[in-house]
Every structure is written in structure tokens, then in C-alpha cells.
Simulated assay, not measured.
Amino acid sequence: MIAEKQVKKTGRVERILVRILQVLMLIIFALGLYYGNSGVFVNAGVGLFVTFLPGILKRRYDFTMNIGIVLWISVAMFLHAFGTLPLPGLDFLSPYKAVWWWDHMTHALSSSLVAGAAYAVTRALMEYTEYINMPPRFMFAYLLIFVMAFGVLWELLEFYIGVVSQLAGAEEVLTQYGLDDTVLDLMYNTLGGLLVAIFGTAHLAGLSDELLGRMEGESAER
């Protein structure tokens, strides 16, 4: 009984934190619009939209995510959006430009989300069909390779967005800082995937079970 109350209390606190982060991202979005900074309002707007996706999935498809996972998503999106905002205390540079570890932190967080999604989907597929089976060691390697591959695609996306922005004479929405930065980004992407592969899989079982239930339900309706 005490444990149940503690879980409910924790869930309530996490929901409040999610709302606070969403409000802060809305403020960042508004500041970006006010100052005409496309890098700020685009990143904040996209991040804010992503934080509302779990609620949209719940209402439209009755797909429920654990509030802890929603908070995980919200923290990653907020830190990325905040990182683009020029701050007076940093000589009006953004944390991405003024704080050397900010980019590494957000890459590790974002890659952990990618690894978490990959694990949840793959585990659900393993339970759903007998044709997919990954022993724990193979799953560990699979998550790392998946995150590394996704990281490479993301770096290519950043590069080409930068090229298009320069050709169009527009402000860059995503920025690359050279080859060394790209290599470090990939290293921290791998770190995020590694942390999920080691510690995070137990916390993603509920999400995986939810996906499995949806697949089995749709299969039964056919």
C-alpha cells in the first residue's frame, strides 16, 4: 500500500515536471519568434511538439507511455531547445556555443531515446513473432550498432541542412562545428546507447508490452 502511494506520488511529480518543461519550451519558442531567431524557435517548436506526442498517441490510439519515459523525452527536448537560446550570462552566446559539454550531453540524451525506442520495438517484435530472436548479447550489440548508424544519419542531416541554409542565406537551424565535433558527437551517441543497453532495458519493458498488445490486437481484428 505504501509502495503504491509512493508510485502515485512519483508519477504526479513527474507529470508536473513535464508540464513545467513544456511551459519553458513554449517561452523559448516565443523568445525565438520575438527576436526573429529561427534556430531557437524551430528547435523549441519541434521539441515542444515531440513532448505532446505521447498525449496524442494516448488520445488517438489509446497507446499509453509510462510518465517516466515522457519525462525522459521532455528533458532531452528541453535541454536541446535551451541550448540554442542566447543567454546574457554567456555574453549572449547559446549554451551550445559557450558550454563545451552541452552538445555532448544532448547527443547522449537524444541517442538514449533512439536506443530506447529501438529496444522497445525490437522486444515487442521478438514477443510477437517467432522469426525474430535476439539473445541478450546480440541485443546489446544491436542497440549500439543501431545508435551509431542513426548518429551517422543525423550528422549527415546536420551537414546538409547547414549547406542548404548557407545557400539560401538563412540562419542555420542545426549546426556542425567541424570533423572533430562530429567524431565527438558519434562517441557520445554511442555512450547514450551503451547506457540504455546496460541499465535502461528493464525500464522499457512496459513500453514494449504496450506495443506488443497493440500488434496482437490489430492482428486479432484481421
Results as ranks from 00 to 15, higher is better:
A118T: 09
Y34W: 14
A81C: 02
Y35A: 04
A149T: 14
M77V: 01
A120S: 14
F63C: 09
R214C: 09
A202D: 12
S74V: 01
V114H: 00
V147E: 04
L143D: 12
T64N: 09
A205H: 13
M126C: 13
W72Y: 15
T129R: 13
G36M: 10
M215P: 11
F159L: 14
A117M: 07
N133C: 08
A120E: 02
V121S: 03
D181E: 09
W102D: 02
R214A: 10
L53N: 08
H203Q: 13
L57W: 07
E155W: 05
P86W: 02
E4M: 08
T10E: 14
L125V: 11
L195W: 00
I56K: 06
R12S: 13
S110T: 15
V42M: 09
F41P: 07
I161R: 06
W102G: 02
D185M: 00
E130W: 05
G162A: 01
I69L: 14
F140R: 13
V99Y: 03
A30V: 15
L125P: 06
A141F: 12
M126V: 13
T84K: 12
I145C: 12
L184Q: 06
L156Q: 06
A170S: 13
G178R: 10
W154V: 02
G200F: 00
G55L: 12
T122E: 01
L21T: 08
A115S: 09
G169V: 03
V183G: 03
V70L: 09
M126F: 09
I56P: 04
M134V: 08
S94Q: 04
G193T: 10
E14I: 00
I69F: 13
L21D: 11
Y119T: 04
L204Y: 07
D62W: 00
T10S: 12
D185V: 01
V121L: 15
W101P: 02
W72G: 00
L93I: 00
Y34D: 10
L90P: 11
L212F: 14
L144N: 11
V40Q: 03
M25I: 03
V147K: 13
D185K: 01
A118I: 05
L179N: 03
H104A: 14
D185G: 00
T84D: 12
Y61Q: 08
V75N: 03
L186R: 07
P88V: 04
G206C: 03
L153K: 02
L87D: 06
G169I: 02
L167P: 04
D62N: 11
I67T: 11
V70I: 12
F150H: 11
I145R: 08
L207S: 12
V164E: 10
E218V: 11
I132V: 15
L24V: 10
I145M: 14
V70T: 11
L179C: 03
R59Y: 03
G193L: 07
D180H: 06
W101A: 07
V50F: 14
A202M: 03
I28M: 09
I69C: 05
P136F: 13
A168P: 04
I27G: 01
L195V: 14
E210L: 05
